[in-house]
Each structure stands twice: as structure tokens, then as C-alpha cells.
Design a protein around this nucleic acid. Structure first.
Length: 416
DNA sequence: TCTGGGGTCCTAGGACCC
DNA sequence: TCTGGGGTCCTAGGACCC
């Protein structure tokens, strides 16, 4: 039956901004167009060139030779993104900076400017909402949109509306995006990759075998590197291979829940709704040190970083209006093993000193005889601050946390 | 000279309660 | 003396995503 006004077919779009960070940077530094540019790392002295130009309003006139280069970068970290010209050298996102510097030492390296990307993120999402109000945020540069009941959403399977969205975003931001439209989020996500950049791809239910099944399993959003390796070990390489296995066999090898999901995904089934709002579950701050630290020898530095992380999490909670009752820490050792410890108390807090105290208790429960490369602090079990009736400190009093709150009041700041 | 930072969800065992 | 289940919460680790 053909789609009609009275019988709309479910049409879900996945919209993905093209090389988002790099494209935003090129708006500010048009002279870098076509050059190998890499974005990543933390702020460094070379970047003062950029800061001074920003203050003087002359960013678009910085001579090429004055831009910071990746070969001069000191320290560790990863590339957040790379322009197409940089990718020609084999440089890609999530690659270590040192490795990228070996592959393309002359690449221009810009610091990550999240504030600027967030500004553009708001801009393009406003354009979408004005056209199609059922939008789900998937981070700074991606959204799902339910086109089913949007006027014109059924035309050409969603192509007409997609073109309209692209034009509105281009007019407002100067940026391009790629859109995939399909019967559900799973297929829409895959479809948006078919025709990059600035493309539109329409997938219908009947296209499953021709457009989806030839793809590698890894293309399914939810199959990561570990599962992909395991699948390959079982001689399953394409989605067609996966779809050929039966449900019980997959559940035996991958567990009841994940096995059933794999089976459904391979057959293009996904009934998750487009979620227009969500509540955060946890907030955290973590940092990787310039060089690995030792719990005893670098105790002072570790303690200072630890306190700063707690203060940052507390500030994040306060700014967004949340409190939490599960306080935790994360440590990554020099061999990249990670451990976490957490502790749930019977009161809610967003107080830096309380978080510092409870996180300090967690830290005491983890082995500290090995060098540490990362330290993190997390607060979970979140509630809206105005939904929690008892004042945290009052609520704590007279409960199990009496001695603890006493310590908090006394500010026991010794680290280990 | 490997491997960021901020998240979500799932699993599995144990505690605890009914 | 032996023997239940179900449900929820907590903790630690891990896979995955942007």
C-alpha cells in the first residue's frame, strides 16, 4: 500500500554534520581550506598566535607559516578530528598525536574549542526544530528526527524534507550535513553514511537485502571492535552473514539480551522511539596526566588534581541544577588497566568538599602501588536539585552518615 | 613515542527484604 | 530440619558511542 496522509509510514532521519569541528574551524580560518589540519590536544604556548588574532579580529588573515604545527606538540593526547587533506596521510580521529605527527609533521594543529562547536550546534538544531519538532540529540553534531507526521515528511520517502533541512542549516551556519531516512533509527544511522558529504540517502524496508546486508557488521551502531572480532572468529563478516544465523544460536554465543538484539538488528528491526528529552544519570570529570604519576612520590600533585576534579564536578552539578548520592573515582594505571570504586550515601549532594571527602574514601580502597596515568571523579544517582526535599546536610544528620558528615565539616583533606 | 573525555547501558554477584 | 522464590539496590567491570 502506498503511503498516504491517512496511513503515514514511519520515516526516521539521522542527520550528521559533515566533519563538524573541522568545518567550524574553516569558517574562522578560511585560509586553511584544502590543507592538512588536525584538531586536538590541549592548549599550548604556540596557540597564543590564535588567541591574539581572535582578540584583534584578524583570524582570517593569519599567515599560514604562523599557525601551530603538530610536529611541535609536546605531550600526549589524541586527535579529535582531521580534515580530508590530513586524512590523505593516514591521520584519523582517536589517533595518538605522536603517531599523527610522524605521519604528517607539517599538519596545522588547532586546539579544540568546544564553546564554539556548541554555539554552532545550537544554531543548526534550531533550524531543524523549526521544521520538524520531534528531534533527539545525539551529541554535538548528530540528531535523529521523526519525519513521520511532519507535513511533507512522506514525500519521496523523506527526500524532499531532507533537502529542505540541509538548505536551512546551510543558510544559517554555512555548514553541510548528511541525512539518511529509513523506517527506524538503526537503518537511518547507517543510511546517513551512504552519501557523504552533503548527501541524502533514502532506505525503505524492501532495501534491506541490497543496501544493508552487504555491509560489514561493524557498521551497525552497537557492534563495536570487541563484538566485531568475536563475530569474525565465528566467520560472520557481513550483516548478511549475521542475518543467516538463527536467534537461539546468537543467544547462546552472545547472551540472551545481546543475542536477541543482534538478530533483530541484522534483520533491520528497531522500534526505539525518537526521544526528545532525557535526564542525565551521572556527571564526571577526568584527566590524563602529562606523564604518569606515582601515588607516593607525586602525592602533592595528585592531591591538587583530585581536589580540582571534585570542584569541577561540583560546579557542573550546580550549573545544571543536579545533586547526586553515588560518588565514585576512576583510576587508569600506566598499563592502561582501569579500576573504579564508588560509594552510595543516603543523602544527595553537589558540594565540592563532600564529594572530595567521599571520593577520598573510595581512593583508599584501590591499590596504589603502580603508576597512574588518569584520575577521574564521578557523581551518579542524580536528581534534580529542586526535587530533593531535605537539605543534604540536615538529611545526613542523625543517619548513618553522621560521622561522615562530621569529617566533612572538619574537612579531612588528607588524600590517602 | 601508542591509546582523550564525557557519557549510557548491561551483567553478575551479594545483600537484604518480603 | 530443610527449603522457596521474587524484587530491588549496590558495586565493579566492560562494551559501546560521540
Amino acid at each position: 500500500m502506498p503511503p498516504s496522509e491517512s496511513h503515514p509510514v514511519r520515516r526516521i532521519a539521522h542527520l550528521d554534520m559533515d566533519a563538524f569541528y573541522a568545518s567550524v574551524e574553516l569558517l574562522r580560518y578560511p585560509q586553511l581550506k584544502g590543507l592538512p589540519v588536525v584538531i586536538g590536544g590541549s592548549w599550548r604556548s604556540e596557540d597564543e598566535v590564535l588567541v591574539r588574532a581572535a582578540e584583534a579580529g584578524t583570524r582570517d588573515r593569519i599567515p599560514l607559516e604562523e599557525f601551530p604545527r603538530i610536529r611541535d606538540y609536546v605531550g600526549r593526547g589524541v586527535i579529535t578530528t582531521a580534515t580530508y587533506a590530513a586524512r590523505q596521510f593516514g591521520v584519523g580521529s582517536a589517533m595518538g598525536i605522536m603517531k599523527a605527527a610522524r605521519l604528517c609533521p607539517d599538519a596545522i594543529m588547532l586546539p579544540v574549542d568546544f564553546d564554539e562547536y556548541r554555539t554552532y550546534s545550537r544554531l543548526f538544531k534550531e533550524q531543524i526544530l523549526a521544521i520538524a519538532p520531534l528531534m533527539e540529540n545525539r551529541g554535538v553534531d548528530e540528531v535523529y528526527i521523526d519525519l513521520t507526521d511532519v507535513p511533507g515528511g512522506q514525500e519521496e520517502g523523506g527526500r524532499v524534507l531532507s533537502a529542505q533541512l540541509q538548505q536551512a542549516i546551510l543558510d544559517a551556519t554555512g555548514l553541510t550535513c548528511s541525512i539518511g531516512v529509513a523506517p527506524n533509527k538503526l537503518l537511518a544511522k547507517m543510511a546517513s553514511e551512504f552519501n557523504k558529504p552533503n548527501g541524502i540517502s533514502i532506505v525503505h524496508e524492501a532495501d534491506l537485502e541490497t543496501m544493508i546486508w552487504p555491509l560489514a557488521c561493524r557498521k551497525i551502531n552497537g557492534i563495536g571492535p570487541r563484538t566485531d572480532e568475536k563475530l569474525k572468529g565465528l566467520d560472520i563478516h557481513t550483516i548478511r552473514d549475521l542475518a543467516a544465523r538463527d536467534l537461539t544460536w546468537l543467544m547462546e554465543h552472545f547472551g540472551k539480551s545481546y543475542g536477541a538484539w543482534l538478530h533483530a538488528a541484522a534483520h533491520g528491526r528497531d522500534d526505539r522511539p525518537v526521544e526528545t528529552s532525557s535526564e542525565p544519570v551521572s556527571m564526571s570529570r577526568e584527566t590524563t596526566f602529562g606523564s604518569d604519576l606515582h601515588a607516593v612520590r607525586d602525592r602533592a600533585e595528585l592531591g591538587a588534581v583530585f581536589t580540582r576534579l571534585c570542584e569541577q564536578v561540583a560546579a557542573d552539578l550546580a550549573r545544571k541544577g543536579y545533586v547526586g548520592k553515588t560518588i565514585g573515582i576512576k583510576i587508569r594505571y600506566d598499563d592502561f588497566r582501569s579500576v573504579t570504586r564508588d560509594h552510595t550515601v543516603d543523602f544527595y549532594t553537589a558540594d565540592a568538599r563532600t564529594i572530595r571527602q567521599l571520593a577520598g574514601q573510595c581512593l583508599k580502597r584501590v591499590p596504589l602501588d603502580q603508576r597512574i596515568r588518569l584520575l577521574g571523579v564521578r557523581v551518579g544517582g542524580l536528581e534534580k536539585a529542586d526535587q530533593v526535599s531535605e537539605a543534604p546536610a540536615l538529611y545526613a544528620a542523625g543517619r548513618r552518615a553522621v560521622s561522615r558528615s562530621g569529617e566533612v565539616a572538619g574537612l579531612n583533606l588528607s588524600l590517602f
